[in-house]
């Protein structure tokens, strides 16, 4: 029930942004559609609604966003360097790293952060054993432990505090 109310509020908020100068007809249609969608698919998206009342997680999320934007800008400058160099200095390969995250949202955010940070892109997730396969544009280390330390750890520690 709680998760349905959460999804209803979220859907109605996005609807209100989409039709921004708000009108009484738009508001009524939005309430109807958000009620329909949340009553049908309420339990699919939000599995543990008790996490939303924990205030510490929002603080960690506020720390995660600027770090993510900074890494993203670094990644873009790195790509611009490699592309504009006449020799194209790349040494690509697919490496395998470990992760401790279990929840769906945490794994999705981890894969997205890895894709947008310097030189790495997530190719596949092995959820049973906790492995990620990562395409690395300049392979520094083939070993599992060292690659885990180089790629995953900074984001994993933060995302564990937010989503687990």
């Amino acid at each position: 029930m709680k998760s349905k109310i959460l999804l209803f509020v979220l859907g109605f908020f996005v609807w209100a942004l989409l039709v921004w100068p708000p009108d009484i007809q738009h508001i009524i249609i939005g309430i109807l559609i958000a009620f329909l969608v949340s009553s049908i698919t309420g339990d699919l998206f939000v599995k543990r609604p008790s996490l939303f009342t924990d205030f510490k997680r929002y603080l960690w999320f506020g720390y995660y966003v600027p770090l993510f934007i900074w890494e993203c800008i670094k990644a873009n400058i790195d790509v611009a360097y490699r592309v504009s160099h006449p020799d194209v200095p790349i040494k690509p390969g697919i490496v395998k790293v470990k992760t401790n995250l279990k929840s769906d949202t945490g794994l999705t955010f981890l894969a997205n952060s890895i894709t947008l940070t310097p030189g790495t892109m997530c190719v596949d997730i092995d959820r049973e054993n906790g492995f990620l396969y990562i395409h690395w544009i300049y392979v520094k280390d083939k070993d599992i432990e060292k690659a885990t330390k180089l790629i995953v750890e900074t984001f994993e520690n933060i995302l564990k505090r937010i989503f687990e």
Partner: peptide
């Protein structure tokens, strides 16, 4: 400028995975 660099990477890099990597990062930002 970042859009242009991303599309330059799409032309210059050698295989699908490198192209995908460069283009996704640059064009998204």
């Amino acid at each position: 400028a970042f859009d242009f660099f991303g599309c330059l990477g799409l032309v210059r890099l050698p295989d699908v995975y490198n192209r995908l990597q460069a283009a996704t990062k640059c064009v998204t930002l």
